[in-house]
């Protein structure tokens, strides 16, 4: 526990020490920062950031936040959920460790996404301590995500590698466009889950890195220079990447939640108890089911 506390506090102390020692933004570096804004040879990240942040990001997020749930509502009303018996046999799919790590990530996301949206739509909340609190909470929840992302990436990595099933799955959109219950080509995880896994883990690490850069702002670990950027350009790039990835992650998160809560009735129980319904595995993860049968595990 002591180690964890130290590992959290040390970067903060180092950051403030680095700040006090030599500012990468307002010290002697100010010239290269100013020159980076609109120089022909620069990446013009300044004007690009102003354009996207002032006119596009909040609108794109509004579309995602409204359109994705609307599409799912229509799906629920027109096609309806897949219902599998919860009284039959169950198959043990998630160990206790996996469930705990997933729980930490789930709580982190339940904080990260609403607080992130609060920052994006801050002007409609009047700014001030409410949105400032959301920004701080966004940072605290990141610590929870940091704890969970590495073990989650490692214990699911092998099963998340792409297979031929995934191509077939994508072509029929996982069978979610029909009411018929038939065998869907998928291993332990289907192509949709795999996409979410890669976006959330690799994308998540990028989110942590870009978020940390914006949080610390004025630091000098020769990171910006190694990218050939001035410190402010590095921060601009971080903000751009953070926002673009956030659109993707938010859309996937809504999908993940809809699938587990509504689209497949009661599917969320597998990550709570560790047991998945026999039929759910048999039809929605048919290749995995066949493999288990072959190994005589069911």
């Amino acid at each position: 526990m002591k180690k964890i506390i130290f590992s959290i506090i040390t970067p903060l102390i180092l950051a403030s020490a680095a700040y006090a020692a030599d500012s990468q933004i307002w010290g002697e570096m100010i010239l290269s920062n100013i020159k980076a804004y609109g120089e022909v040879s620069s990446f013009s990240l300044g004007p690009l950031f102003v354009l996207l942040q002032s006119a596009y990001f909040s609108k794109i997020f509004l579309v995602v936040v409204l359109a994705v749930p609307t599409v799912f509502l229509l799906h629920y009303l027109i096609i309806g959920p897949k219902v599998f018996s919860h009284d039959g046999d169950k198959i043990y799919v998630f160990s206790l460790f996996q469930r705990i790590i997933h729980l930490i990530a789930a709580v982190a996301f339940l904080i990260l996404i609403p607080t992130g949206l609060m920052i994006i739509f801050g002007k409609y909340l009047g700014g001030g301590s409410l949105v400032l609190g959301a920004r701080y909470l966004h940072g605290v929840a990141t610590l929870m995500f940091i704890v969970s992302v590495i073990p989650m990436f490692l214990f699911w990595l092998i099963e998340m590698l792409p297979t031929l099933d995934d191509i077939k799955w994508v072509f029929i959109l996982g069978g979610y466009l029909s009411k018929e219950i038939k065998e869907i080509p998928a291993g332990k995880f289907n192509a949709g889950q795999k996409m979410w896994f890669w976006v959330a883990s690799l994308g998540g690490v990028v989110m942590i890195a870009t978020g940390a850069a914006m949080y610390l702002q004025d630091f000098n670990y020769n990171i910006a220079a190694s990218f050939g950027l001035s410190q402010i350009d590095f921060l601009r790039a971080s903000a751009l990447i953070h926002n673009v990835l956030a659109v993707l992650i938010t859309a996937f998160f809504f999908t993940h939640a809809y699938m587990s809560l509504f689209a497949i009735k009661g599917a969320i129980h597998s990550i709570i108890t560790g047991y998945k319904e026999n039929d759910e595995v048999k039809y929605l993860h048919s290749s995995f089911y066949k493999k288990l049968k072959k190994q005589g595990q069911i």
């Binding site: 933004i25 307002w26 100010i30 920062n33 100013i34 804004y37 609109g38 300044g46 950031f49 102003v50 942040q53 920052i119 801050g122 009047g126 700014g127 001030g128 949105v131 400032l132 959301a134 920004r135 914006m214 702002q217 402010i232 921060l235 601009r236 903000a239």
Partner: peptide, 18 residues
């Protein structure tokens, strides 16, 4: 308005003059 500001730093990224 400093009481509205959340200290996110976006204005710094937008400013051509630091």
């Amino acid at each position: 308005d400093k009481e509205k500001c959340i200290g996110c730093g976006y204005c710094l990224y937008a400013c051509p003059f630091g």
